[in-house]
Amino acid sequence: MILKVTLALSGALVLTLAVFYAWATSGSYPRENYTDILTYSADSADVDGSASEGKPLTLVSYNIGYLSGLTNQEAVARPKTLFDDNLAAVIATLRAINPDIIAYQEIDLNSKRSYNVNQLEALANALGLANAGLAINWNKNYVPFPYWPISAHFGKIVSGQAVLSRYPITENQRTVLEKVASRPFFYNAVYLDRLAQVTKIDINNRPLVVINVHLEAFDNPTRFQQTRTVRGIAETYAKDYPVLVVGDFNSAINRPEEGDRSIEIMAESALFTTALAKDQWTNQPTFPSESPEHKLDYLFYTPATIELKDTRVVAEIGTASDHLPLMMTFTLK
């Protein structure tokens, strides 16, 4: 009798866990919309060719860390005021810069951890950038991270990468990069996808390709392979288009624990150059935002088709994220 009860309880527990796993690893965002091109009601000023001819374009790349500031992966309670204040700081800073293109990483659309605010829509409307290319990379009903306490779990997440543009977006694609093979299946099942988002923008009837990336943070061999994949994609597009490769590469030349640096793979491409010379990378740290020590975020461009005018870290944005954004101004040749 005791054995039957034990087996019944064990079976019920296994079934419950199986049902929970299936539900948790599913998501609420439709897969057919993972690479949407969206148009918001924001007024994109100065997009006609005559007004913009010869005018340098400005791009910002920003791992926005879902506006969680320095608390990004910490098991702490985050009040809504934290997100409201960080959103206001980002809007104020980026309005002053008035960028034409913004490439975001870690931007939430409907996540419990950030109070279910559509951050992409809020920023598009506030900054007057009506065109968006979206690439969903995290769509789970329940993410049990940070692991403890349970009250700190992220729970439901709809998040991704996005390119906002003053100019029309004509194409938008996502390539899911290699996962960490050594991780157990249940870990990968609730973890985000690492992406290369490829967005084609029409700049006064001239195409510009922006490749927006967010690479593996914790496993060096996987990040190496992801970087090789990104470089291959970028070099293919560079044969026909001016190309910018931007985002969070999660590799720094001044972190000894990293060993070999995966960012070197992108830097060795004959078709691309960095907005900041490699020997100056340590002079442009982007992480952590409070007292930056490491450059994890990069801007690469095709010098044959793009002329760089200026680049800098947008330090005045403060700690709205655990990263600082990068900015570059450029013209198409």
Rank of each mutant, 00 (worst) to 15 (best):
E290W: 04
S44P: 06
D219P: 09
F249T: 11
Y298F: 15
L82P: 00
G155I: 10
F330S: 03
I317D: 00
N72D: 09
A238D: 06
P146E: 11
G49P: 05
F330R: 01
Y62R: 01
L59H: 03
T236F: 08
I253S: 06
K295F: 00
N98K: 10
Y298N: 05
T222K: 04
A196I: 11
P184I: 11
P99A: 10
K309A: 13
V47E: 05
V246E: 00
A51R: 12
Y298M: 06
A238T: 07
N125F: 07
A275P: 04
S41T: 14
V209P: 01
N283H: 10
L67R: 00
V246I: 15
E178N: 12
D43N: 12
D85T: 03
L17E: 12
A88V: 03
P168D: 12
A275Q: 05
T286A: 01
R166C: 12
F83M: 04
Q280I: 00
G232K: 10
A24H: 07
V47T: 15
F218N: 09
E307W: 02
N212H: 07
Q161K: 02
V76R: 06
L120T: 13
I203T: 08
N220H: 08
N283T: 14
I157F: 05
L17T: 06
S61N: 07
I102T: 01
L195D: 12
L308S: 11
Y241H: 13
D85F: 01
R166H: 09
T170Q: 07
M266D: 04
T311Q: 04
I265W: 08
F287G: 00
R261K: 14
L67C: 04
P56L: 09
Q280G: 05
F185Y: 08
E171Q: 14
T35R: 05
D310Q: 13
N172C: 11
T222P: 09
P30N: 08
T331W: 03
F272C: 09
R174K: 15
S68L: 15
Q173F: 14
A135Y: 06
V209M: 07
